[in-house]
């Protein structure tokens, strides 16, 4: 019973914190994007537009729910809910500091990858259930892209696993505290692995230059075309949470998690700084680059990312065997 209680409390906490962080992450993105484009961004609701996420939420809640004719209602309703659920569930195993971790699983990394791979199902469901051709194409693209980019994502995380010899996320951080961040060490391959992981992360969370499932100039709004109101909001939030959690995981695996020179609250602030910096950089990339075509995306993945990450795994194994023993 105590475990259950602890789980509920921590789960509630993580959902609250994550959703809040995501909401103001959106605000940050909008402000950042506006400044990149010589605009002002949200500045009407609250000081510096800080209440904009609240206003957005109120707006979405008031909107009419529309079901397209011929839509598969069950899947149509379920998809946004599942997207957000899976995105948040990933966060359960992320160690935000030495203490602040929901479930310090032995197989934390595997859990993260598994749930990340799962995201594709609700996304496809949303595309399928909308009874809209643009949404359907978006859904199919999402499936193809997610499966393809899952491979380099897994392989580059495997690099970290081979180096550290553990699949536990906090174990990986502890190893990095001893030996140095994996993005910097060993010099060269570490950075490459980080960059590949980052690219795969962009693709998994459907961000430009890999946002072909949404591709609003081609597919109107991709899978979200027919969604309205809070269901649209949930799909939207799910994507942002996914990106946020993905940034946190990248920070854990490659940037040393809560490691840093000064320690307040056992390094929680370092984790927050790293996560927010990665999150912001995802949106910096998003508002700076053009988008690939779907076949180019696949070619990039299978011809470049996968072989390079395979090579990195081999390199990591050799390094582990000869240098670290």
């Amino acid at each position: 019973m105590q475990g259950l209680l602890r789980g509920l409390v921590y789960g509630g906490l993580i959902i609250t914190v994550l959703m809040t962080a995501t909401a103001w992450g959106m605000w940050l993105e909008r402000k950042l994007a506006a400044r990149m484009q010589s605009r002002i961004g949200p500045n009407v609701v609250g000081k510096f537009g800080l209440l904009q996420p609240v206003a957005d939420l109120m707006k979405l809640l008031q909107k009419e729910e529309i079901y397209p004719i011929g839509a598969d209602r069950l899947l149509f309703d379920l998809a946004p809910f599942l997207v957000t659920t899976f995105a948040i569930a990933t966060a359960a195993v992320v160690p935000f500091s030495a203490e602040a971790v929901g479930a310090d699983l032995d197989v934390g990394l595997l859990w993260v990858l598994a749930l990340g791979g799962l995201m594709v199902i609700p996304v496809w469901m949303a595309g399928w259930a909308s009874n809209n051709k643009f949404a359907l194409i978006g859904g199919m693209r999402a499936v193809a892209q997610s499966i393809s980019y899952g491979v380099p994502l897994v392989l580059t995380s495997l690099v970290a696993v081979v180096f550290t010899g553990t699949m536990s996320l906090s174990g990986i951080v502890k190893f990095q505290i001893e030996h140095g961040w994996l993005a910097l060490w060993p010099p060269g391959p570490g950075v490459v692995a980080f960059v590949l992981f980052y690219m795969a992360l962009l693709a998994e969370s459907n961000r430009i230059p890999f946002d072909i499932p949404e591709a609003e100039s081609e597919l109107v709004a991709g899978i979200t075309t027919e969604y309205t109101g809070m269901k649209f909001g949930l799909l939207y939030v799910g994507e942002y949470v996914h990106t946020m959690v993905g940034s946190a995981i990248a920070a854990v695996i490659f940037l040393g998690g809560w490691d840093g020179p000064f320690h307040i609250a056992s390094g929680l602030h370092w984790m927050v700084i790293k996560t927010v910096a990665l999150f912001a950089s995802v949106y910096w990339v998003r508002w700076s680059l053009l988008r690939f075509r779907s076949d180019q995306l696949m070619r990039l993945c299978w011809l470049y990312l996968v072989p390079v990450s395979l090579g990195l795994v081999v390199f990591a194994a050799l390094w582990r065997h000869f240098v670290l023993r």
């Binding site: 990149m36 484009q37 010589s38 605009r39 430009i208 230059p209 946002d211 949404e214 591709a215 609003e216 100039s217 998003r286 508002w287 700076s288 680059l289 053009l290 988008r291």
Partner: peptide
């Protein structure tokens, strides 16, 4: 043209707003 390629929610809109400016 950049908007067509980069989307209204991406780098395309950056170029668009610069040229529009």
């Amino acid at each position: 043209f950049a908007l067509d390629m980069g989307g209204a929610l991406g780098g395309g809109s950056g170029v668009f707003i610069y040229t529009f400016r």
